[in-house]
Amino acid sequence: MSMAEGRGRGRGRGRGQGQDSAPAPRRWLFARLDAFSGNKFFAFGVFIVALSIFLAAFGAMISPYDPQAATGDISVPPPPITEWPRLFYLAISGQLERPPHWFGTDQSGLDVFSRVISAPRADMTIALGGALISLFLGTFLGLIAGFYRNWATELMMRVSDVLQAFPVFITAMILVSLAGRETGNLVLALALVYTPIFIRLTRSEVMAQSARGYVQAAWAVGNSGFKIAIKHVLPNSLVPSLVQLSVTVGFAIILTAGLSFVGAGVRPPTPEWGIMISVGAQQLILGEWWPSIFPGLAITVTVFGYAIVGHAIEQKFRET
C-alpha cells in the first residue's frame, strides 16, 4: 500500500486537489498489480484477460457492424496502419458515412473487425466455461482421490489416465460429433478432456499436504476426516490448480478455435476465431491475408495474456 501511494505521488501531476493519500484509481491499480507480481508484463496480462471477458459480454454490442450480416463490400483490404489515426478521428467526429473496415472484409463481405471483437462471446464462453467446470470437478475429485486412498479412487485415477492418454483434440472431436455441435456440448466436451489434469494436480498436492505436520495436528486436535479435507487440506492444495487454470483457459481457446476450424465446433456464421481463420484460409493463396491473420493474432494475444497471469500467480505463491 505504501508503495502504491509513493508511486501515485511521484507521478501524480495535475491532480491538484490535495488528495495525496488517495491516488487515482488507475495508477493505484497498476501499482498494486506490479507489487503483486513484480513482473512488468503482469499488468498487460491482466488487461488482456479483462478485455477478453469484457468482449465476451459486450463485444457484439459495440462492434461497428453486425458481425453476421454482409456489408456488401467484398474482400476489402484493411486501411494501411498509418491511416488509422486519421480515420479514427474522422469516424468519431462523424465525418464518415459508414465506419471504416479497420481489419477489412472477407469474401462474403463480413466486417473482420466486428467479427474479431464479437468472437469472444463464443470462444471465451466455451473455453472459460470448460476450464472452470474442469477446475471444480477436477479439484473435487482430486481431493477425494488424494485424501481417501482406496480401490474406488484408484479406479477413478486409472479411468482418468485412460482419458488423458487420448490426444485432447481427438477426444473433444469425438465427444462433440457424438453429442452434437451445441455450445453446451462443446463446454462439456472441453470440461471432460481437461478434468483429468486437475484431478492429478490436486491429488498429488493433497497427498503432499496430507503428510504435513499441520494435517497430523488437525487429526490430533480431534477433527473428522471430512473437516480436515475441507478446512485444512483443500485450501492449501489449490495453488497448482489455480496456476493451471489460466494455462488451461489458453489451451481451451486454441481447442475451441481448432474444433471450429475443422468444422466440429461452433457453426458459421456465428463469429468465432477458428471459423474466421478457416474461411479466410481459402483466400490466403489469393493474397487476402487479413480475414485469417487478425483472428489468428487475437488468439495469440489472448493465450499469451492468460499465460502471463498464470505465470505471475505461480511466482507469487511459490515465494511465500
Binding site: G213, Y214, A217, A218, A220, V221
Partner: peptide
C-alpha cells in the same frame, strides 16, 4: 494431546 517437533509445520500456514 501431542506437540510435534516442527512447530511451523504443525500449524495450518494460512
Amino acid at each position: 494431546q501431542i506437540v510435534f517437533q516442527d512447530p511451523f509445520d504443525s500449524m495450518n500456514p494460512r
